[in-house]
Amino acid sequence: MLMPAPIRNLYERWLARRLPPARQVVLDQRRIFIFPTGYGFFYLLVSALLFIGGINYENNLILALAFLLASLFMVAILHTFRNLSALGMRNGDSESGFAGEEGALEIVLFAQRRDHHCVWLRWPDQDAQQISIRRGEEESLWLNLPLPERGRVTAPRLRVESRFPLGLLRSWSYVSMDHYCLAWPRPQESPDCPADGGKENQQSFSSGQTGNDEFQGLRNYTAGDSLRRVDWKGYARGRGLNTKQFEEPVGGRLWLRWDRLQGLGEEQRLSILCYWILQLDPQRQPYGLELPGLTLAPDTGDVHRWRLLDALASYPDF
């Protein structure tokens, strides 16, 4: 929508007041707007033409037809409204990403009172996604979100729109979800690992050796295990998802420390730490992170890596 900046600001403020952010939103008449689509106007024009035709031919039945079209249009107002009304939305999961790339937020839609057909959701300037929710069920939708810079990226105002059932009218609502995505720092390469402990030879960490670890056996995959350790060959043969067990590496535990990066800017420090987390992760050597106000014990695996990266992203308010 194009409008002059002051009006646009006023409009935004009005919207923000009318639709405050919430973690869970159920659309009601206060939130739903409705307006004819282009085709809706065309439809009314057809109705008017038929009306004129009916008048000119003095044909009551053609008049009735014109009135039927108009009545259908009116009934469609209610039906289009109804299709959005009572649609519930709440925060789902979020998927973090590096700053400058994209994260994703999960919106869980729930239909308490009725089916909702062909509902479109989109952030401003993003592609819309369509979804239908049956009564009493929940569906979730992942919407990509650009992450311009490190930190918490709050969800923009979500536009929920539907033209169902006749396409003559568009009902829409803006929903401000109190939901955010974490943007990890952009990794910045740095030759020195800001880490304590472990083997003295730092080089070996970045050389990507994996031969150190000794294969021990398999155990059932549990959520959170590194996908790199899954016995994919076995999985391909239909043996189910199992995780390869390795012996604890001999190198011992590593601590990535904020304090080791004295003299650098905050963001730069975070970026370097991020880079090293990514470097250390494939090594299967436990590594921990120490930030001002937060210490995360050494461990390995995807979940651990995510926890560390999320900590970097949310610095300094964990």
Binding site: N56, Y57, F67, L68, S71, V75, H79
Partner: peptide, 25 residues
């Protein structure tokens, strides 16, 4: 929807004033 539209059609049919033909046919 059509069944719901029909009573409204009847109302419009009864109440919307009939205009004289704009041109004759």
């Amino acid at each position: 929807m059509t069944l719901q539209a029909i009573p409204m059609m009847v109302v419009l049919f009864l109440l919307v004033p009939r205009v004289a033909p704009l041109w004759n046919m």
